[in-house]
Amino acid sequence: MSRVWMITGANTGIGLEIALKALKEGDKVIAAVRSPEKVPETLKTDNVSILRFDLSWSQEKVNVFAKEAVGAFGKIDVLVNNAGYAYMGGIEEISDENVKQQYEINVFGILRVIRAFLPDLRAQRSGLILNFSSIGGFHGYPGNGIYCSTKFALEGITEALAQEVASFGIDAAIVEPGYFRTNFLASASAGQNLAPAMSEYENTPVGEARQAFVKYNLKQPGNPVILAERVWEYAARKGLFADRKRRLRLPLGSDTGAQLRSFIADLQETAEEYREVYESTDFKD
């Protein structure tokens, strides 16, 4: 049975690859994009509904958009919150204005989308919400701390959301890609979406991160086509997920896997070394 995918940012990068994979498997796609005129020819088929959308829209406007999206094919089976952006720079380098804008799009924008689609998902008592986090969703990186913090927030939101909507037959999951070969680093490597540099940080991890944006742009290890295959399989419970439990987190990329294992080891060491400390703080009665 074909599925209907609603994908934000479906005209480029990972969003586009997921859309193409879904179409290849006979599914239908609602491509939510900021500039419909820039959608590639590969998405201009009868099984795709191209709709203008922006994460900066108000809740009221997103609600109207959601009704239009559901009306395109009569339902939504998979809601993919993929769109977002990264504003780079050290914590001291980034202004409040830029931090607020980053949260407005990457956190509040996605919250508005979730709220807008939940009434229909609850009514049909089915659906899968895929919120795209990052390897930076559980590990903060120098020169990228604000973006990482928005993904930390999205992970916490999704953990709670998954428990809140389970009784309605809805699943929610966190997708954690590592560094995939898309244009994600392009704007930072070109000096855009990048805070003005402070000379004090030139020879620190923040300065090294600025150099890495250029060095690793379009040289990332992850293959976005294969990522799309894994995401589709996760949703369809096929392929590598035919006999695997659908867990809350979907880590993708060997770099994410390595960081995940390192994170687990650090937590384990902390839990063991500080056991006397944290157990000492309870009431004794």
Rank of each mutant, 00 (worst) to 15 (best):
E272W: 15
F152T: 09
I264E: 08
E200W: 15
S149E: 01
E272D: 14
A242R: 07
F152Y: 14
L218G: 05
T182L: 05
L248P: 05
V175K: 01
L154E: 00
P224G: 03
R247D: 12
L185V: 04
Y278C: 06
C148L: 05
T256W: 01
G178R: 00
R247F: 12
I174P: 02
A186P: 01
L161W: 09
E272H: 14
E202H: 15
G253I: 05
E269S: 14
N203E: 07
K219A: 10
G222F: 07
E272M: 15
K238S: 15
G207C: 08
N223K: 06
A242T: 11
K238Q: 12
K151L: 03
V165H: 02
A162M: 03
V214P: 04
A160Y: 11
R261D: 14
N223W: 13
V175H: 00
R210Q: 02
E208L: 13
I174N: 00
V206T: 12
E279D: 14
P221D: 01
A228H: 02
N193A: 11
A197R: 07
N193G: 05
I170M: 07
N183G: 09
R261F: 12
I157N: 01
G156F: 11
T182P: 04
A195L: 06
E229S: 06
A271C: 12
K245H: 10
T204S: 15
T270D: 08
A271G: 12
E229A: 10
I226N: 03
A190L: 09
A195C: 07
S254W: 10
P177C: 06
Y274S: 10
V225Q: 06
W232Q: 01
E202D: 15
R237V: 08
E276W: 11
I264H: 08
K215F: 13
A209M: 08
E202A: 15
G143T: 09
A160Q: 09
A188G: 03
E164Q: 14
A172N: 01
S262V: 14
K219F: 12
C148I: 08
A242W: 04
G222I: 04
R261T: 13
S254G: 10
A212Q: 11
S254K: 12
A160C: 11
L154G: 01
T150R: 03
F180W: 03
I264M: 12
N183Q: 07
E233K: 05
V277K: 11
T256M: 07
T204K: 11
G207H: 09
G156S: 06
G239P: 08
T158R: 01
I146R: 05
A212G: 08
A162G: 03
A166W: 12
E276C: 09
F184S: 00
A242L: 11
R247A: 14
P224H: 02
